[in-house]
Design a protein around this nucleic acid. Structure first.
Length: 416
RNA sequence: CGGGGCGUAGUGUAACGGCUAACAUGCAUGCUUUGGGAGCAUGUGACUCCGGGUUCGAAUCCCGGCGCCCCGACCA
């Protein structure tokens, strides 16, 4: 894509009221536009990042048998009253129509998905079942904070599973846990499956998925030798203690972390609330055991910014970057450098390389470099009179200081 | 929801209770410039968040809203 056509622009300064790193950089880079506290619009670059994350999430959910659906966002109040959430969950938005009918908007969707499953999954032969969606969620937070990290509207992947037995739920829970770890790893983040309270959902433990970052709002304790990790809220252990789960005599380390997902055993709460039963192999009526599995997509984007940004701007992991390459043309005029850049851009685009081409005229080299650092695209290609004369391009990584000059033809063949 | 802070051109800042609200940046036009946020010139852009009050006079002081940020609480 040509940067001269990109309708957003970078800004030298962040609005003074944004103090979180993720919001400052995302706004300065033109990734997002703030609508109000806790609500952001995602502009072309931001949308591309979200789509990258969503694609990874989708692939991993599909891989464990999840079926993607899209549930309604506007909900009738009745199912929410039926489960008690209308009265008991204070983040539920309550909307009154002009005819005084009550509605809500999705903040989690057990109330919608359970009646759907009830209509189709009536036999043990239909189970297990896992459905998910990726969409907007709305929570009436008393205090939105930390930029895109805790908003009143955000994008979440929410999956719901239905099982015949506790054993089958436990099996799927373990599978989902592994799939989650894969999602974060593919997004370039190191996450730990962290034992945590199940909140109002369940008395059982749940797993929170925590990315280690100093910007995190949670404190966790993790073992240096085994996968054990717990939120400090639920454990009396402290840093330096011997790990009790460990056969390798590991020690616990305390760290700041940011939650990017959570999985719950819902038991039969919702199947009871909706009187949802299936027939087992003996013809008896049974309540399915349900699970709920969430990943905060917009939050994941914010965490990636927080975790990797440096003093010059954003540093995207390759897998979620809006573009893989940033081609910067230092062409003073419509001469050979511009022609070289136009042709290189077209060649790469035709090969399916995701590339942003800074073809802007009348913008100084310094400004282009500063913008490129701010946007955080992993690979930079610079072309100028110097490089073009010899048919070369200059390659530099966003995270590296050194650049190398190679022949354009060698560069193209290195892409395979 | 409790506590604290802040609301002035698109953005960042300035302005003792007193001239036509200033500077930078951005944007527009022209000329020059092109390897780390270029230069000159001319323009453009503000009901100083809203509503009351005090005063000869309010961006400035007082009261009440609203908004935004931070700490806490909360966090399906």
């Amino acid at each position: 894509m040509r940067q001269s056509q990109l309708f957003t622009k970078t800004r030298r300064e962040a609005p003074s009221d944004e103090t979180s790193k993720n919001a400052q950089l995302l706004i300065r880079g033109g990734y997002v536009h703030k609508e109000m506290a806790g609500v952001y619009s995602y502009l072309p670059l931001g949308r591309r990042v979200l789509e990258k994350i969503e694609r990874i999430v989708r692939e991993e959910m599909d891989a464990i048998g999840g079926q993607e659906i899209r549930m309604a966002t506007l909900h009738p109040s009745e199912p929410w009253k039926q489960t008690g959430a209308w009265e008991n969950v204070d983040v539920v938005f309550k909307i009154m129509s002009r005819t005084e009918k009550e509605y809500t908007v999705g903040q989690s969707e057990e109330e919608i998905v359970t009646p759907i499953a009830q209509e189709y999954a009536l036999s043990y032969k239909d189970l297990p079942l896992a459905v998910y969606q990726i969409g907007q969620k709305y929570r009436d937070e008393l205090r939105a904070k930390s930029g895109v990290m805790r908003g009143r509207e955000f994008t979440m992947k929410d999956m719901y599973s239905f099982h015949e037995t506790q054993e089958d739920f436990d099996r799927f829970y373990a599978v989902a846990k592994e799939a989650y770890l894969k999602v974060y790893e593919r997004c370039g983040l190191t996450a730990k499956a962290t034992e945590a309270s199940g909140g109002s959902f369940t008395k059982k433990l749940s797993y929170e998925f925590m990315v280690l970052t100093d910007a995190g709002e949670d404190d966790i304790l993790y073992c240096d030798k085994c996968p054990y990790c717990a939120n400090v809220e639920i454990t009396k252990e402290k840093e330096g203690d011997a790990c009790t789960r460990c056969t390798k005599s590991g020690k616990l380390t305390r760290a700041k972390a940011s939650e990017v997902g959570n999985i719950f055993d819902l038991g039969t709460k919702y199947s009871h609330d909706f009187n949802y039963t299936f027939r087992d192999a003996e013809g008896n009526q049974q309540y399915p055991i349900m699970g709920c599995f969430g990943i905060g997509v917009t939050r994941l984007m914010g965490v990636a910014v927080e975790a990797f940004a440096d003093e010059k701007g954003i540093v995207w992991p390759e897998s979620v970057a809006p573009f893989a390459y940033h081609l910067i043309s230092l062409a003073p005029d419509d001469g050979p450098v511009r022609a070289f850049g136009d042709e290189l851009h077209e060649t790469l685009a035709k090969r399916g390389v995701e590339i942003l081409y800074d073809d802007r005229k009348g913008v100084s080299a310094g400004e282009k470099f500063a913008d490129s650092d701010l946007l955080g695209i992993p690979h930079r290609i610079v072309i100028s009179k110097k490089t073009v004369a010899d048919g070369n391009v200059e390659i530099k990584e966003r995270t590296g200081a050194e650049m190398r000059i190679i022949a354009k033809t060698d560069f193209l063949s290195s892409l395979g």
